[in-house]
C-alpha cells in the first residue's frame, strides 16, 4: 500500500472489525520538526496480546487466516523514513495506533487521496462516530461525522462547512503549493 490514506483505511477497518463505534483520526504535520504523525484511536476492546506480538505479520485475530499484514506494512512504511509505529491503550478505552514519518524523507509514501478516503468512510459507516483532526503545527481543524445525521441543524451546517474546509485543506496538502490553502482557511 504505497499511499498513507490506504493505511488509514486499513487501521479504521481493523477498529470496526473488533467492534469500535467511535474512531478518532489525527493527522499532524510538524514542519519545524520535519515529522508527519498519523494517530488512530478507538473505543474497541483494545489489545489482547503484547504490542510486539500484534506487529508480527503472522499474528491475526481473524478466524481462518494466518497472516495479519496491515500493521506490519505500516510499521515498515514508517521505519523506512526513520520513523516508527507504536500501539498503546488510549483514553477512550480501546487501542491507539500511531505512525510517525519523516516528512521530507524521499521514501515517505505520498499522503494519497484523503478526501475520497474520508468521504467513503463517513458515508458507508454512518453508524460509526468519526472524529477527524487535522493539525498543522499548532493549528487544529476538527470534523465530527455525527453532525451529518441531522443535516438541518445549525450544528450540522457548521460541521459540513468544516467538512468542506477539511477537504479543501487536504487538497492543498496534496498540491504542489502545499498548505497554502490551509493557511487561508484556518
Amino acid at each position: 500500500m504505497r499511499e498513507l490514506a490506504l493505511h488509514l483505511l486499513d487501521l479504521v477497518e481493523n477498529s470496526i472489525r473488533v467492534g469500535a463505534t467511535r474512531i478518532g483520526i489525527h493527522l499532524q504535520l510538524d514542519r519545524a520538526g520535519d515529522w508527519l504523525m498519523l494517530r488512530v484511536k478507538d473505543n474497541g476492546p483494545g489489545l489482547s496480546v503484547r504490542p510486539e506480538e500484534a506487529l508480527n505479520p503472522f499474528y491475526t485475530t481473524k478466524s481462518g487466516k494466518r497472516t495479519g499484514l496491515g500493521l506490519s506494512l505500516l510499521q515498515s512504511a514508517a521505519e523506512q523514513t526513520g520513523g516508527g509505529l507504536g500501539l498503546w491503550s488510549c483514553d477512550w478505552g480501546g487501542l491507539e495506533v500511531w505512525a510517525k514519518f519523516r516528512w521530507s524523507h524521499v521514501d515517505r509514501y505520498p499522503l494519497g487521496e484523503w478526501p475520497e478516503t474520508l468521504a467513503g468512510m463517513v458515508s458507508t459507516r454512518p453508524e460509526i462516530e468519526f472524529l477527524f483532526e487535522l493539525q498543522l503545527d499548532d493549528r487544529i481543524l476538527t470534523f465530527q461525522s455525527t453532525a451529518l445525521r441531522n443535516p438541518e441543524s445549525t450544528e450540522a451546517v457548521d460541521s459540513i462547512q468544516l467538512y468542506g474546509r477539511v477537504l479543501e485543506a487536504l487538497q492543498s496538502m496534496l498540491s504542489v503549493e502545499e498548505f497554502r490553502l490551509f493557511h487561508e482557511v484556518v
Binding site: 487521496e113 478526501p115 468521504a119 463517513v122 458515508s123 454512518p126 451529518l148 445525521r149 443535516p151 451546517v157 459540513i160 462547512q161 467538512y163 468542506g164 474546509r165 477537504l167 479543501e168 487536504l170 487538497q171 496534496l174 490553502l181
Partner: peptide
C-alpha cells in the same frame, strides 16, 4: 479530488454531496 470551495454554491454542493452519500 475535492473541488475548491469558493462560493456559497460550492458549499451547498458539498453539503448535498455529503447528504447523498449518507
Amino acid at each position: 479530488m475535492a473541488q475548491r470551495i469558493a462560493s456559497p454554491e460550492d458549499l451547498k454542493a458539498v453539503r448535498e454531496k455529503a447528504q447523498q452519500d449518507i
